[in-house]
Write a protein that binds this DNA or RNA. Structure first.
Lengths: 250, 250
DNA sequence: GAGTGGTCTAGACCACCAA
DNA sequence: TGGTGGTCTAGACCACTCA
């Protein structure tokens, strides 16, 4: 899955030690120099590993002092980025399950066709209902474009589609765009989520891409408002995207 | 504001060229070797600049081919991270304004006191209503902790608090945690946002920190559901945060 | 002043891609 | 086969913090 280069192994190792509180919150990691000796590597490689932990919000580097372990993780489970429901669920220790309502090979519906897709783009359509403690919580409607997704067995849909795509099909998942809005629920959605008529539903629409920038997945996720929670960790960005009109503070 | 080091200048310059389509979407940037010559710097420095652009979703690097300019920015204005309302508003070209409803020095209310704060934490409380096209859209309730925020004039609250903190007070804003939920609106909130009684409201709660990990801001932002939109760009993360129980796909 | 992280360099070797 | 990005190295100099 992830390349077994030095910086990733080191980042993983330190992340694991933070998770097990071998490096406790509010304490400093060993200095970069010490980590060089510990892992037998150069300082730039150590720094690249620490950069990953910084981006994740596990540590904060303070000039002249060291790398401080943050204790944010204890309160906020990071859902930023895309996380597969199954594993998120396991991590949070909820009693949850997935029902596959539909799975069929079809073509992309007209309203989802854009410049990025073909006119008659074949795709697998999957509709899944996520239950938390026997209560409907999320309805997922996924289109998995084919190509690049060649096959999609029902067992994969019930389990983890991402694990299947990466593990079995060898696809390299790279990035995604996501949009969260609140809308009036469509009757078919309302019924499946046991919402009130005319009730509001949280909609997360996303486009997911492979490493070669191929679009492979278009998803709409409908969340019961009372079950919805999105947690994010964000670092201040140094680049100003629109220098003349706007300044991005983070 | 941002340090004027080589990698930031280069990242900013390339980002600007992408924005002005000097480097057009779906084309490749000059190779890293060419960029070295162009900016008269080493390859690692070029690569650190490109890493910033990659993280922002401006480019995608493809092994053996080059750095491809993505065209995501045209469709999705990045709101990930914290963005000040004023500048976001300018960038999107909306007719928006801010009304400062309250501004007073007080102490943090009991429900916001945690391990991270003092028992009687002095703070500035600011309540602001954001109007888009004369319609109430967002109600912000900010507590700015004092220290580190020493002063907060009303003009700064009406303009941009972040610009004031960074520009005038010299504070180094670094990172934030954010949580989005949907809740029944409190009557005082419902009234100010002109919501229906018992209506739902989108709540964004955030904690913001300085570079030395000092908490300086606790905010609750109440959004009219019909005006709310959150857009995110996320890259697959290589580090597994909870290796034994869960696997973070991104 | 000793130790820390921040930045930068000039190489090196590799895997991947295209022609 | 030549060009691309991916990774790593062993130094260097700087600014900052703390005793």
């Amino acid at each position: 899955m992830q390349p077994a280069n030095k910086q990733n192994i080191i980042a993983q190792d330190i992340a694991s030690k933070i998770h097990h509180e071998i490096y406790a919150p509010k304490t400093f990691l060993p200095s970069e120099h010490q980590l060089c000796e510990l892992y037998g590597t150069s300082r730039e490689t150590i720094r690249k590993a620490l950069d990953q932990l910084t981006e994740l919000g596990l540590i904060q580097k303070i000039k002249g002092r060291g790398s401080l372990v943050l204790d944010i993780q204890r309160y906020t489970f990071p859902i930023s980025g895309i996380t597969s429901f199954k594993e998120l669920n396991a991590a949070l220790g909820m009693h949850a399950c997935t029902k596959v309502l539909h799975l069929k090979k079809t073509v992309l519906p007209p309203q989802l066709i854009t410049e990025e897709t073909n006119k008659k783009q074949p795709a697998f359509f999957v509709e899944r209902l996520r239950l938390i403690n026997q209560q409907p919580a999320v309805l997922d409607r996924d289109y998995l474009l084919s190509p690049p997704v060649s096959t999609l067995p029902k067992t994969a849909a019930a389990d983890s589609i991402y694990a299947y795509l990466e593990g079995k099909l060898g696809l390299q998942i790279s990035y995604a765009t996501k949009e969260i809005t609140v809308e009036k629920a469509d009757p078919t959605v309302a019924k499946k989520l046991a919402l009130l008529a005319d009730g509001l539903v949280v909609v997360v629409r996303s486009h997911s891409y492979l490493e070669d920038t191929t679009l492979f997945q278009i998803t709409a996720s409908f969340h019961r408002p009372d079950k919805f929670k999105f947690i994010d960790f964000a670092r201040r960005k140094k680049i100003l995207l629109h220098p003349t009109t706007a300044k991005k503070e983070f």
